[in-house]
């Protein structure tokens, strides 16, 4: 099995507050990792470090065999040459979509293909239309984000991320801004990607969904991994995990 993410002993502080206190895990190709935990436990910070929106303080990270940073005398040292290539291997889907409001749906999906991957107009549009069909949005190609529902916007943002053919896709609470019906749309899309063996790490509060699609799971609290493994959904070992999981039972 090919290791796509190997994260070792990641530490991160904001000012004097230590937000991540030594996080380690690995994800193999084609696997889905779900990350759960209470608000403020550091889940977003974790994804933001892996997708290079934040800098790590200490630890090491290897993505698809390429080192992004490594720990040297208690400090994360970045490998600048790899950073951009690794960035192209990772995609991130945000809770708040962050579509570009001044571009129509098609252009949202083609812009980076053209500017970053230097694909031709035809090629990038063909790719965009193929993804829009997959998202069942082909009739919305010429609309603007503000004309779409939240669920449709989130599907466009997933298509936008997929258009760059990432090796690993990260989701940070992709359904938290959506009502239950639209949430189902998105979960459906992520599940389909899981079936296609897309490597993914998903931060979510949708426990049943996470349980259903995950090959591995971690429960975080106050910057540490309290428990790891999919059994934490059905048979949590730790008291803190048990409390958290049971708070979702209705």
């Amino acid at each position: 099995m090919q290791e796509m993410i190997r994260l070792t002993d990641l530490k991160k502080s904001f000012g004097s507050v230590e937000v991540l206190k030594g996080i380690s895990f690995s994800v193999n190709r084609g696997q889905v990792l779900s990350i759960i935990g209470p608000s403020g436990s550091g889940k977003s910070t974790l994804l933001r470090i892996i997708t290079q929106l934040e800098k790590a303080d200490d630890g090491s990270l290897v993505i698809d065999g390429q080192e992004l940073f490594t720990s040297r005398s208690g400090q994360a040292v970045y490998n600048r040459e790899n950073a951009r290539a690794i960035g192209l291997k990772t995609g991130l889907v945000f809770q708040s979509f962050n579509l570009f409001p001044h571009f129509n749906v098609l252009r949202n999906i083609t812009e980076a293909q053209r500017a970053v991957l230097r694909r031709s107009k035809d090629e990038s549009e063909a790719k965009a239309m193929q993804l829009l069909r997959k998202m069942e949005l082909e009739d919305k190609a010429l609309m603007y984000p503000c004309q779409l529902s939240g669920g449709q916007q989130q599907r466009v943002s997933i298509a936008r991320a997929l258009a760059l053919d990432p090796e690993i896709l990260f989701f940070d609470e992709p359904t938290s801004a959506l009502d239950p019906e639209l949430t189902r749309e998105i979960l459906h899309v992520i599940r389909a990607l899981a079936e296609e063996k897309m490597t993914m790490a998903v931060v979510t509060h949708e426990m049943n969904f996470a349980k259903a699609i995950s090959d591995n799971a971690i429960f975080m609290d106050s910057g540490v991994i309290v428990e790891q493994g999919t059994e934490l959904f059905s048979d949590p070992k730790e008291e803190r995990t048990r409390k958290f999981i049971s708070s979702f039972d209705s």
């Binding site: 290079q52 945000f94 962050n98 570009f100 409001p101 001044h102 980076a112 936008r160």
Partner: peptide
């Protein structure tokens, strides 16, 4: 301008000047 616009641009691999002229400035 929402900082999410800068973050999405960064994650998609746009360089700083590209982000400014094509994503931020028009808005």
């Amino acid at each position: 301008i929402d900082k999410g616009q800068y973050e999405a641009s960064h994650v998609l691999g746009f360089r700083k000047s590209y982000t400014f002229f094509h994503i931020i400035l028009p808005q």
